[in-house]
Nucleic acid binder design. Structure first.
Lengths: 342, 342
DNA sequence: CTGAAAGCGCTTACAG
DNA sequence: CTGAAAGCGCTTACAG
């Protein structure tokens, strides 16, 4: 705290009131006359007292006023993923005005021992930025602390979550592609499980991804009657999408679906690189609805999730948990936005 | 904290030692026999005690163990700027293993009252992610708290800073462009001052930008003998660069310089849009050295700053401030990386 | 509406 | 090497 020299006790003395009364002047948590309050505040101003020490108040109250935000399992990756960052933005801008601090926590890698902050930092609740994948050691560490968490993108089975209707969205996209006459659809999915590495996924199997987001999105496509002619799982970076696109194009698809906009942008670049016209020779679609100003003339067909709102909902859920509430899982709608690429 | 039922007092009692001894077993801050320590730790494990309450320890120690990180003045903008995000990444990954928490703070807008977190959250020091511009109300709020800060990119006049030799870098770039025979160089700079809006900047004046980063980079170009034929100030987003490019191309430059890679990428897109070949018809260069996988065949000529290292240095400076040290301003080298665009 | 008292959980001189 | 005591700065029942 860089403990300020003057304390509430000093202020009380200067104002000629008791410590409890001085406390009330700041917290407003009890009855106090306007005159007394003014007197205390004036004394505080006089002494340069800036308000109650948050650490001391936390100790007494039993709450830290801090919400942890755990980035996706690969920290550096999460920091390159605009969707995670926009979630974070939504969370911070929701928490700060409500007087809650946002403590940024790097998730531990799958096998690593969890970070000291994850296991010991003072917080009242945490937001788990799942993305498709969360390392089990991170979840275990949080559980061992009995720290209540809200997951973004999770299945909602292990506590409250904020999720999008990805399945419905992908079904809409699948139907859209079928209406356009596409029968050969190749898909670059998000990872199927924790620690999965980039590469092809066998098609024609009914195997379902362990990662909930990946599973739900694939379910949606299948519900629309789209059975991929080729699949590739990868992270959500443009590079990943480019690599996926190069591999998937070998199957001569007429449409490419990426499970994120960054992946889809990579698919689009791979298609251009192969000399294909979009959408005449091949259609491309994504998921997220983020801005990609560098795509030039193209606007990606995509499923728009309300990312900032999801961040806000996650933050509000975390606050509710922090004060002992039991927030429910919230599911938000996604919207099919048809661009120039399908 | 979701205060755990069992406290150090319980552990001490169970282990049959005094509270002070139990404390020593965890902190290691004093002499304690291995046998006693084991006894305490065993009792703790037995009771499911997870270590000293950080809030209580903070109060007693007079330090919170938290470093604030203030994002650039426009929060949403900072979250879209990969350079800020990579600084943040470097900071978090440095602080966490050293047991320091990273509290993310939205800077107040230029005229807004500073956020409650900024004025009251518990922290020992802060990193100011200046970018080119920091709102004065933010700085004032921090100063009123007497919170020691380290600035990234600042001039280093108002306390320790971590900065790059941008002037040297830009001089190298200017010389490179002159060697290539360019005499008509148009420049898209970062903002010249707090709250500046995008738009043209008068050339042929010796006026110097108020924003230190902008000033130093422009100085560097001028030292190389490059006097811009046109200037445009803007934020560091691709869209900004595109708009800048469209405006600057009217002056028929043979080279475009962006004060960030995102701006330069926008310039490149504007040049392509105008049907110009790069670098045959026009050269383009940037600043930062970030990955831009979506530029396709092109690799931007740019000045590479060691972003992650700068984040690390800022974090270490903040820790030093937190424990009462007086870290010095650190200046790191930048490197000219010649790509395919010049 | 105001005050006296207890206590949040811990760390750190200080004795022994 | 271990223990008894003080106290970090505050909030909150509880009396009055």
């Amino acid at each position: 705290m860089g403990r300020s020299a003057t304390t509430l006790t000093d202020v009380a003395r200067a104002a000629g009131v008791s410590l409890s009364t001085a406390s009330l002047a700041f917290s407003g948590a009890g009855p106090i006359s306007a005159a007394t309050k003014d007197k205390v505040l004036a004394a505080a101003a006089e002494l340069g007292y800036r308000g109650p020490d948050p650490v001391a108040a936390s100790l007494r109250r039993g709450r830290s006023g801090v919400i942890g935000v755990v980035m996706g399992s690969a920290v550096r990756r999460s920091f390159r993923d605009p969707v995670s960052i926009q979630f974070l933005d939504g969370i911070v801008t929701t928490l700060a005005p409500k007087g809650y601090g946002t403590l940024l926590l790097p998730a531990s890698a799958a096998d690593e021992t969890p970070d000291a902050m994850l296991t010991h930092a003072a917080m009242d609740a945490a937001v788990l930025m799942a993305g498709a994948v969360t390392s089990t050691s991170t979840i275990a560490a949080l559980r061992a602390r009995k720290l209540p968490t809200v997951q973004i993108g999770g299945a909602g089975r292990q506590g409250p979550a904020v999720r999008a209707r990805d399945k419905d969205g992908m079904r809409m996209l699948g139907e859209h592609l079928r209406e356009r006459g596409h029968t050969r659809v190749a898909v670059a999915t998000l990872p199927w499980s924790n620690g999965a590495t980039s590469g092809p996924v066998e098609v024609g199997t009914t195997r379902r991804p362990a990662a909930p987001i990946t599973a739900r999105r694939l379910d949606g496509l299948r519900e629309a009657g789209v059975e991929p002619v080729a699949m590739w799982q990868c992270g959500s970076l443009v590079e990943d999408g480019i690599a996926a696109g190069r591999a998937l194009l070998a199957e001569r698809p007429t449409a490419l679906v990426g499970f994120s906009d960054l992946i889809a942008a990579g698919l689009l670049l791979a298609a251009r690189e192969a000399g294909l016209r979009v959408p005449e020779d091949i259609a491309v679609a994504g998921f997220d609805g983020i801005d990609l100003p560098w795509l030039g003339e193209d606007t990606l067909t995509t499923l728009v999730q309300p990312i900032a709102e999801m961040g806000r909902l996650a933050a509000e859920g975390a606050i509710s948990l922090a004060v002992g509430g039991s927030p429910k899982t919230v599911t938000v709608d996604v919207e099919l936005r048809i661009g120039t690429t399908t």
